[in-house]
Amino acid sequence: MNILVINSGSSSIKYQLFQMPEKKVICKGMVERIGIENGKIIYKTEKHSHEEICDIPDHKVGLNKIAALLMDHKVGVIHSADEIKSVGHRVVHGGNDFSDTVVIDEQIKSKIKELFGLAPLHNPPNYIGIEVAESIFPNAKQIAVFDTAFHQTIPEVAYRYAIPNKFLDENKIRLYGFHGTSHKYVTEKAISYLAKEQSKIITIHLGNGCSMTAVKNGKSIDHTLGFGPMNGLIMGTRSGDIDQSIIFYMINELGYSVKEVNQVLQKESGMFGLTGFSDLREIEAEAENGNQDCQMALQMNAYRIKKYIGSYAAILNGLDAIVFTAGIGENSDVLRNLVCKNMDFLGLELDQTLNAKREKVIREINTTTSKVKILIVPTDEELEIAQQSYEVLK
């Protein structure tokens, strides 16, 4: 069975075509820098590798280019759309309605659309991905896998906010958590690697969007993102944690509208707001060349991560391992070094030689004397989505 997985992020689309249940990757690739200059399309099969720099103004254009490559007469891997039996979609926010993977129908789509306000950078491109896939692959079952599902185990003491009870009871305002597909995948891989079912792990997902999860015995018990995917860590364009008073000050004293404040905090803040760059590779290069704004931004980013490591180690009452994953977590030895520096109180000791290596495998980057394992676990959200989609179809 051919299952196409579409993972639409805020500025990218990752995709893979799987033959299931064999978990064989037929092709894979990525559309990068959507809505930014010098957009890029990557497409790889066993026989072909194609890269193209072009303008990709939105997710719809990106998805159509992916479909064209899949069915291209020279480099394509399918002859017709009917060869795709299912399309698995990452959907960021499932609200209070979805805790399981579901087959998409009009009612499901309507619910996803209702949640746009909770994940304005993600649910809209997720929804577009569904609609475009329906038009390109009309006979395929469309499946939704929700980022919030893994975090349904977070206890009430952690998911509730200290606001009047009616907002939880009537409006379902609570912590939901995100990047659950990634956190679930790397958690299971880490537990298998450690050979320790009873474990205390902190998973650190660092990409354009960033989050951390406290995981006890394989279950999520706390998470940095909350009601929407904007708080917690410093992200590519999102502010992360901020004093709520700043929002009221911007509106009441500086004259910003609510819409303008949302735009600032969602798309003009984070590493971009601090440096003028949203790509960490550019920020690290600028920092190396002496750019003080970029140097400070990296320090701030690492400082925020360290704060959450400390708080999560406290609620876990111990720590067996921390796990770095996703594009930045797996590839930025600079940020990993800044995070793990001066953490000997918690038993974290980074091996600089191991940290500097680039390998796409599960591996330790801690010293032999480190009391806590420091792991890099490459995430594979697409495989996790394919597996969950296949189980639903079975």
Rank of each mutant, 00 (worst) to 15 (best):
V5I: 13
V5L: 02
N7R: 06
Q16Y: 01
M20D: 07
P21A: 08
K28F: 12
V31F: 05
E32M: 09
N38C: 12
H48K: 11
S49L: 12
H50L: 14
E51W: 06
I53Y: 14
C54V: 15
D58L: 07
G62V: 12
A67Q: 04
L69T: 01
M71Y: 00
M71P: 01
D72P: 05
D72Y: 01
H73K: 13
V75N: 06
S80A: 06
D82C: 00
K85F: 03
V91N: 07
V92Y: 06
V92H: 05
F98I: 06
S99Q: 10
T101V: 14
I108K: 05
K111G: 00
G117C: 13
L121Y: 13
H122V: 14
I130F: 03
E131A: 06
A133V: 09
N139V: 01
I143V: 15
H151F: 13
Q152W: 05
V157P: 00
V157W: 00
Y159P: 08
I163V: 15
N165F: 11
F167L: 12
F167E: 02
L168C: 01
E170G: 02
T181R: 06
S182N: 08
K184E: 15
T187F: 03
A190I: 03
I191V: 13
S192W: 00
K196E: 01
K200P: 02
I201T: 03
T203S: 15
G207L: 09
N208D: 14
S211Y: 10
T213Q: 03
V215H: 04
K219Y: 14
D222Y: 06
T224M: 10
M230G: 14
G232D: 12
T237P: 11
D241H: 10
D243Y: 13
Q244P: 15
M250V: 07
Y256H: 07
S257Q: 01
V264H: 07
Q266P: 00
K267Q: 13
E268W: 00
F272N: 04
F272D: 00
L274W: 01
L274F: 00
F277R: 00
D279A: 09
L280I: 15
E284N: 11
A287W: 01
E288L: 12
N289F: 04
N291K: 03
C294F: 02
Q295T: 02
M300T: 01
S311R: 05
A313P: 06
N317V: 05
D320T: 01
A321I: 08
N331Y: 04
N331P: 08
D333S: 15
V334N: 07
V334C: 10
C340S: 08
M343S: 07
L350S: 08
K360H: 13
E364K: 14
I365H: 06
N366K: 09
T367S: 14
T368K: 15
K373E: 05
K373T: 04
I376H: 04
I376T: 10
V377I: 14
T379Q: 05
T379C: 09
T379W: 02
D380I: 10
E384K: 08
A386T: 07
Y390D: 13
L393Y: 01
